[in-house]
Nucleic acid binder design. Structure first.
Lengths: 344, 344
DNA sequence: ACGTTCTTGTGAAACGTTTCATGGCGTGAC
DNA sequence: GTCACGCCATGAAACGTTTCACAAGAACGT
């Protein structure tokens, strides 16, 4: 519809065979300069645009990889996207970004579509990783998959992750060190291993030093953070935790907002530590302590791993790259009156 | 590669012709229940996955639309993405999200690829709209295009926009009303009509009431905001503007950070007004006044318009939807000592 | 002059679908 | 008992590429 015709028309116009036109497009060195120019002219005059469907059909494979994220709206993931795009661009591969919205159904539908499109590979932060899932099926059928921001227990695929247990522990140790006796973990759903691991990390760090309660959230958004904070604020002051560790900066920002709104001071009345160290954490009302992850690099190396697996068509050793997170202390968890300001 | 075979294999296994298999897939009502079941079973056993390339090739069109944004990293656009996806999902259409990164070259390459993929239509916030551009060509060749977040002077396409001149004026009037005599506009590049219009708006509002200077930025990021702030801060205090209007919340956040870092107080020493009212504006160190746009709705109606144009295959009247922005006043521009706190 | 090699270009097959004209067969009306 | 009709299934054509075996000369060495 969009373009009148195809290669055939071009061939006629240039007075050559369609095979020759194809060669001009794909292996120009095989065709004499004069002919090539004639074909190029015809293409320009006709406004010919290659039909990718036909090309892929014939080739049997596409030139795209997919990246399925939990939440496009989360700055953490948009940075991952950028990293992946950068790496893919160097290989002349296009990245299709899909948003599961932490919804297994949407994730599944996306995978269906992607498989029909015969993407070369998939980068994914899965909603849940139960065996026998749609994702397993995809892998079984031969599509390379790299897990992003998640370690892979099973070794049937590559993965790029940040040590979330360590991240949780860093947060926990920091808060214990600050003298907090009662700490709350805010996050959910626990089916997300990120949430689970970060929780496990802080649990390990606080064991024997402080009591740890948990407030479950349905997802990792600012709004959920606010609800969680409301729940915490409703506790009698004596039972109220003096520190909150959030599975996510979005949650942390929500908690911060709601606490402030209710006159609960941060960090004097309650300290907050987030996770991801998104750009907005440092700019928050009370600059947010957070666990920093190499977000862009995460995407970049995930894509690199996938592309490597795609090229190594033969035997390929699955690899598991694990980055170390850093604790970034800002005002939201600084010991009252001992403000350690460390901008950005 | 990923799947052993196609419809042919399924047909053989189910003991029917390939035409029948196709019918089961596309018009199940045409085939007898028993046969249909047999085919379905074969599909399940074989793990058959439709080949979308072949389908599209035959059909001559895809089931996808594209959304090309200026910056995936900007929360404004991610909300637009969500809106567009929601609308598209209702029509069973997939949205391919592309990121131009405010780079005309990248935009062009994306459009090339998208046209080869025969997307049904394109939603785009163009980097620059000079006539004769790649975009014009796309439209000329028959791909429906809807301009997002930008009014269309020419009427060869639909557009969805927010009145940026009005937005700029609202900001300007507000600041004038607060008694500011010297205001700076921060933003760029001016080739982005959003930037141009917002500038025009505040220029109109301040004319005769306050002096307006401008600090040009290469793009609309937090980092650029910081540089711009550094530039402003370097001015001798007497020449320094008392208020800054940023083309963007990202810029505003950057300005806020840098000012604070340099000991320039917001809003006492300098007031700041941003644009977009992204979720993080309200949570900023000093809650940011901003011009609110219906971001998600922008994406949603843009997609709706595009889908409408696609369906109305015959004559289609191009429409131009314009939303009104709102001023949201928060502390960053409140008259000192008169804190009007309006959360969220 | 003749065989060999190199350079260009050709035409047909194949990729996996969807669609459409066709045909077989059972059913009900006359 | 015949005709018409509806229901299902079939097989072939077509979509626009890429690829590959092959051929027509030209160039070259002997």
């Amino acid at each position: 519809m969009s373009t009148t015709t195809g290669i055939k028309e071009v061939a006629r116009r240039a007075g050559v065979s369609i095979g020759t036109v194809s060669n001009v497009l794909n292996r120009p060195e095989l065709v004499a300069t004069s002919t090539r120019q004639r074909v190029l002219d015809a293409i320009a005059e006709l406004g010919y645009v290659r039909n990718d469907s036909a090309r892929q059909l014939r080739a049997g494979q596409s030139r795209q990889i997919a990246l399925v994220v939990l939440d496009v709206t989360n700055p953490f993931f948009t940075d991952v996207v950028r990293g992946a795009e950068a790496a893919a661009e160097e290989h002349g591969v296009m990245v299709v970004v899909c948003n599961s919205g932490e919804d297994a159904g949407r994730e599944q539908r996306h995978l269906d579509l992607l498989e029909e499109q015969r993407v070369r590979g998939v980068l994914i932060t899965p909603v849940d990783e139960s065996p026998g899932s749609r994702l397993e099926l995809l892998i079984q059928r031969g599509t390379p998959v790299v897990l992003v921001d998640r370690g892979s227990g099973r070794h049937s695929r590559c993965s790029v992750a940040v040590d979330d247990v360590l991240g949780g522990r860093l947060a926990g140790e920091h808060l214990v060190e600050q003298g907090h006796q009662h700490i709350a973990f805010v996050g959910g759903p626990a089916t997300l291993t990120q949430v689970h691991d970060r929780h496990a990390g802080i649990a390990a760090a606080t064991a024997g030093h402080a009591s740890l309660s948990a407030v479950a959230t349905p997802n990792l958004t600012v709004a959920s953070g606010r609800s969680a904070a409301a729940e915490i604020a409703a506790l009698p002051p004596a039972d109220r935790p003096t520190a909150v560790f959030c599975a996510n900066d979005l949650l942390a920002l929500g908690v911060l907002q709601e606490m402030t709104l209710r006159g609960i001071r941060v960090p004097q009345d309650v300290a907050i530590v987030g996770y991801d160290d998104i750009e907005f954490a440092a700019a928050a009302a009370v600059p947010l302590s957070s666990i920093r992850q190499p977000r862009e690099q995460l995407g970049r190396t995930a894509a690199a791993l996938l592309l490597e697996e795609i090229e190594d068509d033969g035997r390929h050793e699955h690899r598991h790259v694990v980055f170390q997170p850093d604790l970034v202390v800002r005002e939201s968890s600084a010991k009252p009156r001992t403000r350690s300001r460390r901008p950005r």
